[in-house]
Nucleic acid binder design. Structure first.
Length: 205
DNA sequence: TGCCAGGCCCTCTTTAGGGCCTT
């Protein structure tokens, strides 16, 4: 767990909004270090109610599977220990951030680290990609995949490979020695139009 | 009762609307 550790996470949930009562039903995460995946975390969790048939079909996670899973509080407490204060990444992070903070709040815990968005970064690094969904980017960049989609660990692994690929492509294109988390976090907040000039400036020694 | 996500980004924009992206 060195200074350059990053954790890429993905949640499957019962719906789109924690403010409407939706809960996390599965968490998947990978730790990236030295340009590769060095650790994994996966857990199904019981939200305490039945999820819709849409969610069962979308994720392949059935109510029978959730009924046998440990309570969300137990799994999320373990996950909070796993992530510690390591910087976080997610695809469309505003979605996962809302759920993470809502689940931590239930445990009387709070997130302390920054959370970056691979989708906002991808829109700036690959502006001409046919789409910026995780699936479209995996196909476009021919990233490693086992073909599973909409399961937490599989999506976290694909997002991890996307994150590593964007770092490598930026290093090559702008001749950067390193692309730290903080640079990508700042890039995601630069306007799309200003991003190329901003990157050239960032690359100037 | 019926309705309810939310942020980014583009454009025929800013006194707005709609697609993308996440489940």
């Amino acid at each position: 767990m060195g200074n350059h550790s990053v954790i890429v996470l993905d949640f499957e949930t019962s719906g789109l909004s924690p403010s409407l009562g939706d809960r996390v039903i599965e968490v998947g995460a990978v730790r990236l270090e030295g340009g590769r995946i060095v650790e994994r975390f996966q857990g199904l969790m019981n939200p305490g109610f039945r999820v819709s048939s849409f969610i069962e079909g979308y994720t392949g996670i059935s109510n029978a599977m959730l009924a046998e899973a440990p309570p969300a509080a137990e799994v999320m407490r373990r996950f909070a220990g796993f992530i510690g204060e390591t910087p976080l990444v997610a695809h469309n992070a505003s979605f996962d951030r809302r759920f993470l903070d809502a689940e931590l709040e239930r445990l009387r815990l709070a997130r302390s680290q920054e959370m970056a968005c691979s989708m906002l970064v991808a829109r700036r690094v690959y502006p001409d990609a046919p789409g910026h969904s995780l699936e479209a980017l995996v196909r476009h960049k021919r990233l490693p995949t086992d073909g599973v989609h909409h399961r937490a660990l599989a999506d976290a692994e694909m997002t991890g490979h996307l994150w590593l690929r964007m770092i490598a492509d930026l290093q090559a294109e702008y001749r950067l020695n390193a692309v730290p988390f903080a640079l990508l976090q700042r890039l995601s907040k630069v306007s799309k139009a200003a991003a190329p000039a901003w990157l050239r400036q960032a690359a100037t020694p």
